[in-house]
């Protein structure tokens, strides 16, 4: 944890943890690193296929609908999704922060907001998927043509649904983890334990989900 250590501390001479952190948090970091490689592999294969194609659909033509407003609004809906995820990341880090001072009430409040944000994001994604499906897009089906008017391949939809689906699955499991954290907080498990370090580890996962969205959002909607 964030104890200050003298600069000349000998971390590797035995008797103390060289990483100055608890086991669970360290392993969480390594899990997230491996998960980053998974997402990285997905996004790089998307990039490879895009570089090996003569044409590619314009995301502004494909993703331009907003529920209740119809079409003709490129970037608007995905901006909302991004904002929801950033907001829920803020409430999560506020929950972690409140956990450091054993402030149970604030932890509960902020976890509830985070869970609401997670569900809101999943709802947005469900709407977008069903909307695209109604337009005829799915794995193996691509109704959109390339930006230059040529015939597009199904690579575009395959990558879109696979990668946003994989990310959505991460959001879903993050929401489940946060709900478990909320139940444990309500039951006073962390209070009895004397610390809220578990919230911190759940928070790491949730921020990672937000981090991945930064990359997915940029690669699919902006580039």
């Amino acid at each position: 944890m964030a104890q200050t250590v003298p600069m000349a501390q000998k971390w590797w001479s035995g008797g103390k943890s060289p990483f100055n952190t608890e086991y669970g948090k360290l392993m969480r970091w390594y899990f997230l690193m491996s998960d980053a490689f998974t997402f990285g592999a997905f996004l790089i294969s998307y990039g490879t296929i895009r570089y090996s194609s003569n044409g590619w659909p314009d995301p502004n033509e494909v993703f331009q609908s907003f529920p209740g407003l119809g079409s003709g609004f490129p970037l608007l809906f995905v901006s909302l999704m991004t904002f929801i995820l950033i907001m829920s990341s803020v409430t999560m880090v506020l929950a972690v922060h409140a956990g450091h001072s054993n402030d149970k009430k604030t932890v509960i409040k902020m976890l509830v907001w985070t869970i609401i944000g997670g569900f809101a994001f999943l709802g947005c994604q469900a709407w977008e998927w069903s909307h695209l499906h109604h337009e005829g897009a799915w794995w193996g089906m691509n109704p959109f043509s390339n930006a230059d008017g040529t015939q597009s391949t199904t690579n575009f939809t395959n990558f879109f649904f696979t990668i946003t689906g994989f990310h959505g699955f991460h959001v879903f499991s993050g929401v489940v983890i946060n709900i478990i954290m909320l139940i444990m907080t309500l039951n006073g498990v962390f209070e009895r334990r004397g610390h809220y370090l578990m919230i911190e580890k759940a928070g790491l996962y949730w921020h990672f989900v937000d981090l991945v969205w930064v990359f997915v959002f940029t690669c699919f909607y902006l580039l």
Binding site: E135, G136, G140, M141, N142, P143, S145, Q151, T154
Partner: peptide, 8 residues
């Protein structure tokens, strides 16, 4: 909706 997906 139909034709392009069939083609692909």
């Amino acid at each position: 909706k139909e034709t392009p997906s069939k083609v692909t």
